[in-house]
Write a protein that binds this DNA or RNA. Sequence first.
DNA 1: GCCTAACCGAGACGGTACGTCCGGTCTTTTT
DNA 2: AAAAAGACCGGACGTACCGTCTCGGTTAGGC
Lengths: 224, 224, 224, 224
Amino acid sequence: MAAAMIAQDLTQHTVVPSHELPAKLGRKRDLNRDSEILAAALEVLAETGYNGMTIDMVAARAKAGKATIYRRWPSKAELVIDAVACMKRQEGVADSLPDTGNLRGDLIAMIKPHSIDDGQRKFQIMAGVLAMIGQAPELAEAANAAIVQPRATANRMLMQRAKDRGEIAADCDIDTLSLVTPSMIAHRILLLQKPVDRDFLISLIDGVLLPALGIPAPKPTPGP
Amino acid sequence: MAAAMIAQDLTQHTVVPSHELPAKLGRKRDLNRDSEILAAALEVLAETGYNGMTIDMVAARAKAGKATIYRRWPSKAELVIDAVACMKRQEGVADSLPDTGNLRGDLIAMIKPHSIDDGQRKFQIMAGVLAMIGQAPELAEAANAAIVQPRATANRMLMQRAKDRGEIAADCDIDTLSLVTPSMIAHRILLLQKPVDRDFLISLIDGVLLPALGIPAPKPTPGP
Amino acid sequence: MAAAMIAQDLTQHTVVPSHELPAKLGRKRDLNRDSEILAAALEVLAETGYNGMTIDMVAARAKAGKATIYRRWPSKAELVIDAVACMKRQEGVADSLPDTGNLRGDLIAMIKPHSIDDGQRKFQIMAGVLAMIGQAPELAEAANAAIVQPRATANRMLMQRAKDRGEIAADCDIDTLSLVTPSMIAHRILLLQKPVDRDFLISLIDGVLLPALGIPAPKPTPGP
Amino acid sequence: MAAAMIAQDLTQHTVVPSHELPAKLGRKRDLNRDSEILAAALEVLAETGYNGMTIDMVAARAKAGKATIYRRWPSKAELVIDAVACMKRQEGVADSLPDTGNLRGDLIAMIKPHSIDDGQRKFQIMAGVLAMIGQAPELAEAANAAIVQPRATANRMLMQRAKDRGEIAADCDIDTLSLVTPSMIAHRILLLQKPVDRDFLISLIDGVLLPALGIPAPKPTPGP
DNA sequence: GCCTAACCGAGACGGTACGTCCGGTCTTTTT
DNA sequence: AAAAAGACCGGACGTACCGTCTCGGTTAGGC
């Protein structure tokens, strides 16, 4: 978390009066290296998993020295935590929610090929990262915020809109239901190792979400 | 999985004619060591996580030599998988399905106090198991069979009984729904790091499963 | 110094009653590795000098792991010290002194091609080793004992014999004179970087040693 | 050697017309830094040896930046060579040859008290210089010129004078003999690590040099 | 009862990654 | 333009762990 927070601090507090700190001397840290190293770490992480990933690999791919990495993060674990957390920042959190007028249309409109591929990659990164959750509990928080929360939030907003317009009952447990899809996706990718294709997502919507919200399933699943 | 299966083989097929195999000579393997080593592995796993766990730690705690461990399991990963599988066997999830006459009663009867008590320990161990998926994808199936499938199977059997007695509709997607609870539990334990307590499980039953199956929630579940 | 001394202890005190030490368990240390590693270290040292030498190079050449080296020597410096000290043991210290009847004949008989080449190699090793004399004073002692003392001792014995038979005066400073040749050789190899050939050694004998001992130079240096 | 020569050039040719060179712009190089850095280098060298010495240490002690050092010397090795050369220049070995009328008096007059006092310091420094010979053979000549040659030249001049006035024979090998003292000193300092005190130098003169030149020892040098 | 082979604890072994440190270069700000 | 400060790349150091192999000693069978 360290470097990212420092970066935030620097970009947010540029107007801090310079007489407070002792007027930093010497060459400035190249802030571009931060993101380049994080990107390289994510690539290696997705390819080899946490244990397979090597600091030298990351350094080589980012064309950086090991010291440059260890100057920013105190250990491999913290680098990975930050890399996962940085995934969250890359994407616009709720980038243009669909609005088709009814909940089923909205949920299905969320299924975009790009979204599927991207999700696949992220969950594979998560698989590699799970190796160290026992040692670094804050990693769990980062992974949740980066991978699961964006999807859950989108689901919750769609369902809240449906509730607002009276499409579903007011006493539905939206918070719990919005986590069903991400949880099932994680299980399918991590343990079943099956692809998260359109059919699977539709079966989730029509077999779990909509029934649980009291909306009857539409027609016997027409083809794409 | 290796040693456990060998152990099963040995105990089950003691009558195999000895002339088939090259007439095992020498001292017999001490079968007690298997369980002692697995227990030691579970302890260390829970305390340090997968990456923090060391074969030497396990050997020291079990007062065994490393060779004694590697004679039984080919790698650290397989040892851990087997340790988790053995844990599940101890507990016997689906050994006695409840039968209260209605689905909600059955599902709630499945919630046993000790599920909550040792939830924290299982969190560590499950995280450890999931850790190796990135390195050894073939172990994902084993982890799934050991951890998720027992609970999913129990759920499916209960729902099938409910369907048989007409309590729920015939076209319900039981296969998908039976995976909802385990998936949500895994997410809660691994990423949210919150305890899987009775309230959470009841909110799953009343907020997701029963509504999705067309059974109205019983009472408005008085909030805290 | 560590490993060599342990080795000496082991070979010398084999008859020590076994109940004194706690009866060493586990695999025995392979004593052959000691000498193989030291030999590899000497090779690398002669080729690249102290700073150029790498523990990985030594390990690779000795087909050993780094841990095997660090189990025996606590640091690169101590390994080099031991390697230099081990040179001394390799050669028979005073392997067959010549006896031609007069001192000049003895001294010249010591000049053998094999001896010259061997000396060249040793002084080159010494050059590589001088890099760390400031940090490890005991290295100086080892280098002196391994490289300079054997030659000085041979010289001193030849001169003592000459003194015993009355060839040279009784009050000659043999101890000092026996060090002249090694010192001049070291200077020639290390600083002048010129070869130590037969002519140079003869000029030392006839231009310094014999005159200082009161023996007149023979004829105007006949050819070889 | 580089910076010292530049410094000499600059101090000698201050009157060179400025239009000959490309009209040096900007701040002038602070020539005081040269000697301050060299002094700092000598201190660190004497304290830690060549390998122990760090450019950062030198920079910190001289309150200089690393770039300021590397602007003047191309490498750590050359800096050390120059530091030693500068030390020799400070002391001015052959600035005033003694002339007592006979060779023994001249040689003994060369023994100055401070040669003994700072012997220990020079030991460390010389060891440091010899250290780099293995890596940069071209520096051997420089080290030889800075350390050994001044003393050898002084010896040769004294002996030549003695030869000129008929004190010693005309066919003495002066070139070889003039190197005996420096070589023996180097051996005593570097390998024996004993102080180069007055007694040792007198034993060289009376036990080696004068006998080799055909001059009988004066008195039987009373033992300690 | 005794031989033989496989077992056992202990730990050395080869290999590989970690996190630190240094040499030599480059960049930023100040003088 | 040179100075101080310090970030940068590359690579060696010494440590720790994995999975294998070897040691002396123990425990079964089969003769």
